[in-house]
Amino acid sequence: MKFILKTTPVALYFSAFVMLLMHVVMYTAKDRGNYLRHFSDPFNNRLEPLFQWYMWFLDIFLTPHVAIMLTCTFIYLLFYKVWSNFRIGSYLLFFLFFNVVAFGVFNYYLGTSIRMGLAIAVGLYSAIKILEGVKSAWIGLILSPLLHYGLVLFLVYFIWYSLTKSKGTRFHCLVSVATFVFLVFLFDRLLSLLGLNSYYMMYFTEGFGQTERLIPFTVLYFFMSFIAISLFLTNNLRRTIPKFDFLYLSALYALPIVIYQLVSGIAIFSKMLMPQFFLLSILLAYVFDRRFYHGNARYFYVVLFFAANIIAILYALRMYQFI
């Protein structure tokens, strides 16, 4: 069990289910009709250039239907590869926790916004490899915004982290506060200088992409996770978590932007911050494992997370308009 869950052979048994799921929702998931059309005609659209070339390459060998199924499965596996790079005491819990996050929180990026999901997966995987000393992975990280422009924010964060990771927590807290002040007083001016075309400007000026919820689900998830981590995180626990600074600072720098989203109503920010939300989920899994998953309580939590997996998958099917 430990070998299977800690490595990518998870593809041997669970990716088949993911492919089946993506097959059954092929004609019900939101925006899927557009993707079927784009995969059959890769360059006749406004999509990012690297994603166009990706679709063109798959179109040589595969039908649009199969290409989308494989892309969604690849996104799932790359997410899991990033997740499994962080070692934890219980691989079973980490795997079950991952599925709850993948289908309960990130289902939109697994099966609806496919190019954003692919960009997030490539960007995160490249970032992890850079932290492991693979310098060539910078190519993947720099190119990830060309799969979806929403990855620009994560690219900026990672470059900033690479330059300032030796600084203390107090420095990063001050910069985080300064970020919020900048957004409140100067973001509108910056936006006017960027020269975005009318389509992308709608996301920032006309509330494009907002939902009917008072607080978007992903934003609520971010705040709940951040508060839970802050309450249960100890100095001893910090020292046991690999790449803790990278995981924690990604959330710390996301915090002022999420708060500004609530103030300004610019919904696109939470979508651009999904890589940081994913890293926060890894940190949340660590804290849960270290603080609660021990003794006889483990058996209760295994049953609980198995049930949560079923609920998360059903929720994903609901979001894909299948049930």
Rank of each mutant, 00 (worst) to 15 (best):
residue 206 E to H: 04
residue 237 L to P: 00
residue 129 K to Y: 07
residue 181 V to W: 01
residue 212 E to M: 11
residue 144 S to D: 10
residue 154 F to N: 11
residue 210 Q to T: 14
residue 155 L to D: 10
residue 117 G to A: 09
residue 182 F to H: 05
residue 131 L to E: 14
residue 171 F to H: 04
residue 119 A to Q: 01
residue 132 E to D: 14
residue 239 R to C: 05
residue 138 W to R: 00
residue 116 M to T: 14
residue 235 N to W: 01
residue 141 L to A: 08
residue 236 N to G: 14
residue 224 M to I: 14
residue 208 F to G: 02
residue 134 V to M: 10
residue 155 L to W: 00
residue 184 V to G: 07
residue 142 I to H: 03
residue 150 G to P: 04
residue 218 T to P: 02
residue 222 F to A: 08
residue 217 F to N: 07
residue 211 T to D: 05
residue 185 F to A: 12
residue 211 T to P: 02
residue 131 L to P: 05
residue 147 L to E: 11
residue 167 K to R: 15
residue 157 Y to S: 10
residue 162 S to I: 08
residue 127 A to S: 15
residue 207 G to C: 07
residue 145 P to I: 11
residue 182 F to M: 13
residue 193 L to E: 07
residue 127 A to Y: 01
residue 226 F to Q: 09
residue 196 L to F: 01
residue 221 Y to A: 13
residue 117 G to Q: 03
residue 115 R to N: 14
residue 198 S to M: 04
residue 145 P to Y: 04
residue 136 S to D: 07
residue 161 Y to C: 11
residue 169 T to F: 12
residue 222 F to G: 12
residue 210 Q to A: 14
residue 234 T to G: 05
residue 191 L to P: 03
residue 160 W to F: 15
residue 152 V to D: 08
residue 155 L to T: 13
residue 161 Y to A: 12
residue 207 G to S: 08
residue 161 Y to D: 09
residue 122 V to R: 04
residue 195 G to F: 00
residue 175 V to I: 14
residue 122 V to A: 08
residue 214 L to V: 15
residue 174 L to H: 04
residue 223 F to D: 06
residue 146 L to H: 11
residue 164 T to P: 05
residue 177 V to E: 07
residue 169 T to G: 07
residue 237 L to W: 00
residue 238 R to P: 02
residue 134 V to S: 13
residue 169 T to M: 10
residue 220 L to K: 08
residue 164 T to L: 13
residue 217 F to H: 10
residue 221 Y to V: 15
residue 168 G to Y: 00
residue 196 L to E: 06
residue 200 Y to W: 03
residue 125 Y to N: 11
residue 116 M to C: 09
residue 231 L to F: 05
residue 236 N to I: 05
residue 121 A to F: 02
residue 196 L to N: 03
residue 152 V to H: 09
residue 156 V to C: 13
residue 172 H to E: 01
residue 223 F to W: 10
residue 230 S to W: 01
residue 197 N to C: 04
residue 140 G to H: 02
residue 193 L to K: 01
residue 229 I to P: 01
residue 130 I to V: 15
residue 126 S to W: 00
residue 221 Y to F: 15
residue 166 S to G: 15
residue 202 M to I: 03
residue 127 A to V: 04
residue 194 L to E: 01
residue 143 L to T: 10
residue 115 R to V: 03
residue 237 L to E: 04
residue 222 F to E: 04
residue 233 L to F: 00
residue 218 T to N: 15
residue 181 V to R: 02
residue 160 W to R: 09
residue 182 F to R: 02
residue 168 G to H: 00
residue 167 K to Q: 13
residue 139 I to V: 14
residue 124 L to K: 05
residue 210 Q to Y: 03
residue 199 Y to W: 03
residue 178 A to C: 08
residue 120 I to S: 10
residue 182 F to W: 01
residue 162 S to P: 06
residue 165 K to S: 15
residue 186 L to I: 07
residue 113 S to G: 15
residue 198 S to F: 01
residue 121 A to I: 05
residue 202 M to R: 14
residue 212 E to L: 12
residue 193 L to T: 12
residue 148 H to Y: 07
residue 115 R to W: 01
residue 216 P to H: 09
